[in-house]
């Protein structure tokens, strides 16, 4: 297990990147970590690029800044690859996860000269198959936890089930779909 980790999320307003970052903070907290999960607010509106962040550590976290040199970057909407410099500051020992049906080999040329690992997952297909609607945040959460080795797999799923049961207390019928989305993405995410 890694001792500390910094993740930057890129999404578009309404896709749930902030929710995913807060859920990652929740589940990491439940596994005993110190966490931060926070959005960067601009003039938000549906469809505009947004950024959210996670710090996860075994030690108390004192830094209160955005993350400029993340270990991992998650791109929830692949059209952002053209609009935002998503690999800015990204450590080459880390990696980038992109929501796309394309392969990691196809995505790499779009990432300027990023040298680290490139991971892809088809969150749209997974979301449609598991939830019947397009909510990319659960698949992206499952995929990033799979990649970044910050918590035990079984613990992750156990705690996420509890969190979903709490979060969706008024619509418990979506818990199984979200769990399935997490699991599918956790297994399917692939890299180069």
């Amino acid at each position: 297990m890694k001792e500390s980790l910094e993740i930057r999320w890129h999404g578009r307003g309404g896709q749930g990147a902030k929710t995913a970052a807060l859920l990652l903070a929740d589940v990491a907290f439940e596994t005993g970590k110190h966490v931060q999960g926070f959005p960067e607010y601009g003039p938000e509106r549906m469809g505009a690029p947004i950024t959210a962040y996670n710090r996860i550590s075994d030690q108390p976290i004192r830094l209160h800044t955005n993350i400029y040199e993340p270990d991992y970057v998650v791109v929830v909407d692949e059209t952002l690859l053209e609009a935002v410099d998503v690999t800015a500051g990204l450590k080459k020992e880390g990696g980038i996860l992109v929501n796309t049906k394309r392969s990691a080999e196809e995505i790499r040329p779009l990432l300027h000269s990023y040298e680290g690992k490139v991971y892809t997952v088809d969150a749209r297909r997974i979301s449609m198959e598991s939830l019947g609607k397009y909510f990319p945040n659960s698949p992206m959460l499952g995929a990033i936890v799979s990649i970044c080795n910050i918590m035990e797999k079984e613990r992750f799923f156990t705690e996420m089930r509890k969190l979903f049961q709490h979060k969706f207390a008024k619509k418990p019928e979506v818990v199984e779909g979200n769990m399935k989305a997490l699991e599918m993405a956790y297994m399917e995410v692939s890299d180069v």
């Binding site: 807060l22 903070a25 929740d26 907290f29 110190h34 966490v35 931060q36 999960g37 926070f38 959005p39 607010y41 108390p60 976290i61 209160h64």
Partner: peptide, 12 residues
């Protein structure tokens, strides 16, 4: 407390 930096950040 500082807006967003702590008001909207989830921490332990």
């Amino acid at each position: 407390q500082d807006g967003f930096i702590t008001s909207h950040a989830v921490e332990n």
